[in-house]
Design a protein around this nucleic acid. Structure first.
Lengths: 202, 202
DNA sequence: TAAGCAAGTAATCAATTACTAACTTAAGAG
DNA sequence: CTCTTAAGTTAGTAATTGATTACTTGCTTA
């Protein structure tokens, strides 16, 4: 409910605001989240939000920064721990799924931003985030080819698209079922098929 | 612009309205499409829309019916023409992609409906549509196992999720690039990997 | 302890939304 | 040609939105 009913520092308040938006996005369409709803969940009046953010879009931008930092950090960590490129791909996949399961609102926010017609700052941030993510995957797949774990003739670009799409598909399933935990069960099964599609034939 | 500037029958007007929404959804976030925008695109005043639909949600419901009928019809046709289960899967995939390429707003509308917190009629229609679609795929994959085209140990459920997710991923890519035609080029390449993941090892 | 400032409130703003209702007008039937 | 009716217009409504403003409260520190 109210993360910090009393008054607290602006920095802390901004952080709580971002987390509140992420939380609300798990419960409703991100594009219908109002500043009143955000403030209400924080135990604050609506006007108070604008003491910390100049505009609503600025809040969304902060959310994007939060997402980018957290997601990329997890991905990086997963890559480092993995003993091989293919193992890294799997670790990244599972890390991403775990992140999404913990914050089901995040993929909705990203997808929603991409849908916006205007060329907003937050939309560009999503594009940049996914682009960077794709480059990481691209690198891993190319490494996998060299280490002969993956098929040398593999279409790297298509593999990246399928990787991201696979996660997107799992998210959609969880939306369909209205059950977030299903995604954790299904993820390994779906990744197994993906893996078969890219790994070197014996 | 204006599909039928003059006055026309209510039936025709309803059809044009639905097509206009689909068209607008290709250009902007579906949840931001207003009745004013719909009417404007049709060369009509906003109030006139409510001569033909009792509410905005009723318009969306009609759109869902339009989508369900068109998509399922294409899928059915693709299945019938295909000589084998695996060929049918590929035909369905390409038919779906072609449909999405022709109507880029459709997947956005579906995804947007799924995100709604309330349990609306149109949301249930989307759930039903995808469920039926999934059942079709399920059947094709099981057939493929029997005909020994697909791996007997294949996880059917996961394969269905991956199939739909693959399309979702391609849609996301086209949103990212802002280019609809890319999806046609990438689809066969991505499906090739999917196919490798499910077909029987030689 | 008093001053200064940052954080929060409450009321209100203009703009936009879906929806309505009294009216006008065009088209087809007799 | 006229009359009826349905399609469309004009001009509203109430509710909701993001944002602003004048005022209040509480913490820090000189």
């Amino acid at each position: 409910m109210d993360a910090q009913t009393k008054r607290c520092s602006a920095e802390k308040r901004r952080a709580v605001t971002v987390e509140t938006v992420v939380q609300l996005a798990a419960e409703q369409n991100p594009s219908t989240i109002t500043t009143t709803a955000i403030a209400g969940r924080m135990g604050l009046t609506q006007g108070a939000l604008f003491r910390h953010f100049p505009t609503k879009d600025a809040i969304i931008e902060s959310v994007m920064e939060w997402v980018a930092a957290r997601l990329l950090s997890r991905v990086e960590k997963a890559v480092k721990k993995a003993p091989s490129p293919l193992a890294a791909l799997e670790a990244v996949f599972m890390a991403h799924i775990e992140f999404v399961a913990q914050h089901p609102g995040v993929p909705r926010i990203l997808f929603g931003e991409l849908q916006r017609a205007e060329d907003t700052a937050s939309k560009r941030m999503v594009q940049k985030l996914i682009h960077r993510y794709g480059e990481q995957l691209h690198g891993l797949i190319e490494e996998g080819k060299k280490s002969r774990e993956l098929d040398a003739d593999l279409d790297t670009e298509a593999s990246v698209i399928l990787f991201i799409g696979t996660i997107q598909g799992l998210v959609m399933q969880s939306l369909l079922a209205g059950n977030v935990n299903r995604i954790r069960r299904e993820a390994p099964r779906v990744f197994a098929i993906y893996q078969r599609g890219i790994r070197r034939e014996k």
